[in-house]
Simulated assay, not measured.
Amino acid sequence: MDILETHAYDRRQRRNMSCALFLSLLPFFLAAALYFYMGAHDWPASITSAGVKSAPTLLLAAVVLSWNGGQSILGVVGGLIFSAVGDCCLVWPELFLHGMGAFAVAHLLYSLTFLSSRYATYTSSSWTRLLYLILFMFGGGFYTYLFPFLKKAPDSHLLIPGVGIYIVLIIVMGMLAIRTRHISTLLGSLSFMVSDLSLALQVFKVTAPTVHGNTFVMVMYYLAQLLIAVGDVKAVENKDDFAKWKRT
């Protein structure tokens, strides 16, 4: 009976946590909805459009900070803040390299977070190693495909090595997300890759611009940041469950 009561208490705690987390995420949902409703991606480059674009990411950073405390500043919170800086830079096309650098730092911080003791540690299996290989090959293949278009860009001498480093960082981030075996973290990293892939195809003129191209990029981007943030908030809870399982 005591065991049953303990399980029931754990379920109630998780349900209460999920409700509280959802309520704390409402400002993010409202800010993201406002961005799409106002069509901010079609505005001319300005401080206002940069603020509207980066607001959802900054609100996510505030949520993670409120749940996980100051130690998350060098983790997911820091990654979200650098992502917001990248959001602002990409509003101005001439600041593309600066924005890419900010997002590269964000991926590095996410990767360090996924390696931290806050996440449960699992031994690698054959299927995870296969996923690592698939991601690595995909990153290399995409860079090879993108290379001729990078050579045509005005800043090719900076973009060719810069994009290569960026792809390595986001692939490593995805591999470490797989290592956590946390579904939100994994889906968030994959959504980030899809968003960046779509953006790269448009920015480097691999594909013709489409009416809803930027909308798709931003939907996948906000989804990625949301899933990574939620995964980080729940990381300690999942680690506790893993520890309980190991003791049984």
Rank of each mutant, 00 (worst) to 15 (best):
L197P: 00
G75S: 10
S72H: 03
G39M: 10
F36W: 01
G39I: 11
N214E: 13
G39E: 06
F29A: 09
Y37D: 08
A177Q: 05
V91A: 01
V172W: 12
L187V: 05
G213W: 11
F36I: 03
F136H: 05
Q225A: 09
G69Q: 03
I47E: 06
V230Q: 03
L23T: 15
K53F: 14
S54C: 10
Y119F: 14
S49Q: 12
I167D: 07
F204A: 05
V194L: 15
P154D: 12
T121R: 11
A224H: 05
S72D: 01
L23Y: 09
I170A: 06
Q13K: 14
T113M: 05
R129A: 09
F36R: 07
F29T: 13
N16Q: 13
L108P: 12
P93D: 06
S24N: 10
L226Y: 10
L59R: 02
V163N: 03
A55T: 14
H157M: 12
D240V: 11
F138G: 04
M38G: 08
R181Y: 08
M220D: 11
K246Y: 08
P154A: 14
S49P: 02
R14D: 02
C19S: 13
M137G: 04
D87S: 04
F96M: 13
G141S: 04
D42M: 10
D2L: 02
A40W: 15
L146D: 00
S72M: 02
L95Q: 00
G174R: 06
L95F: 07
T185V: 15
A40L: 08
L30N: 07
G70A: 07
E94H: 13
A235F: 02
H157V: 14
I228C: 01
L58Y: 04
H182S: 07
D87P: 02
W67T: 02
A120V: 00
I228V: 05
V219E: 06
A235H: 04
K239L: 10
D42R: 14
G79N: 00
A31H: 03
H157S: 15
T128N: 10
S46Q: 11
D10Y: 11
I160H: 08
I81K: 00
K234N: 12
V91H: 01
L223D: 03
L58M: 13
N16M: 14
G231E: 00
A45L: 03
S49T: 00
I134G: 02
